[in-house]
Computed example of a mutant assay.
Amino acid sequence: MTRNQASPAVSVSLLSGPTGTGGIDDFELFHARSALDRFRRRLGRQGLLDLLAADIEEGNAFLRESALASDGGFEGGTTVLVTQGLTAGEFLAWMEEAFAGDERVLLAAHPEHYVMAPGADGFHVVENIGPHVCSFSMGGWGTDAMAWAKDADARLPEADFPHKMSSNLFLADGTVIGRALTQFGDTADGFTAHLTVYVPTACAHDVLEHHLRHFAVEFRNWIVAAAAARA
């Protein structure tokens, strides 16, 4: 086979062995989460910060430069999730409690969560924004007080989406490197979540696409965790 030839398609099926439900992908995800949780617990918050110090410095520098080059301009996108079997109020009550101090369940929602804890200047987050590991704070989370959010194109009617949270994402020096606007409205059998994120216009579109996927993963897992806690 030459280098330019495509590899033959391979299909692998599980015929027998494990007695639990799910397939090979489910087993791999379970073990990956278990291993990641072990490393997080062994390292602890400061250990993770020390381990990622160089990545954070590089990521913060990239986002600071992108914000300055964008001169206050942001590009936004929205991930929409539909949930059955749980109301928006029930989910947000769980979320408020988790954000008040249950860092482990917050970290578990996404492989690229490293720190999620209350801080002096807001809620402190260390996670990926695109390929860049960034340490930032969220200010105004849980309120609808941000002027930009009141005028945002993504803002939905209050009658249908009464639960709204908005925030600036900012570095320790005050540089705003992103924004978030999340909106929740009940349906006949659950709720719909509109999760909007904004990144500096100077960032490549891949950075926005990455965070739209990030939203889908973390909020799906938070919703599942909220439902499990309620059961």
Rank of each mutant, 00 (worst) to 15 (best):
F123Q: 04
E127G: 12
Q84F: 14
T78M: 03
A61G: 15
G89C: 11
S70V: 04
A88M: 06
D121M: 08
S66A: 12
F91E: 00
G77L: 14
H110Y: 11
V80Y: 15
G76W: 05
L68I: 14
F74C: 02
V80Q: 10
G89A: 15
G72S: 08
A61W: 00
D102F: 01
E58V: 15
N128M: 08
T87V: 07
A108I: 13
E75F: 11
G77W: 02
E127K: 04
L107F: 12
A69V: 11
L86H: 05
T78H: 05
P111N: 14
V126H: 01
E65G: 15
G101S: 03
A69E: 08
R104F: 13
P111R: 02
E58W: 13
D121Y: 13
G76L: 09
G101N: 11
V126C: 05
A61L: 13
A100F: 06
L81S: 06
V125I: 14
G85D: 14
G89I: 10
T78S: 10
A108L: 13
D71T: 05
V80R: 14
F99S: 03
H113V: 06
V80N: 14
F91C: 02
V80G: 09
G85N: 02
V80F: 10
T83L: 08
A100T: 08
L107M: 08
E103K: 13
T87K: 01
V125C: 03
A93K: 10
W94T: 03
D102R: 03
H124E: 10
M95G: 09
T83E: 06
A120L: 05
A67V: 01
F99M: 11
A108D: 15
M95V: 09
L86C: 07
G85W: 05
E90W: 13
E127C: 15
S66N: 09
A109Q: 12
E75R: 11
E97I: 05
T78I: 04
V105T: 09
A93S: 14
L107G: 02
R64C: 15
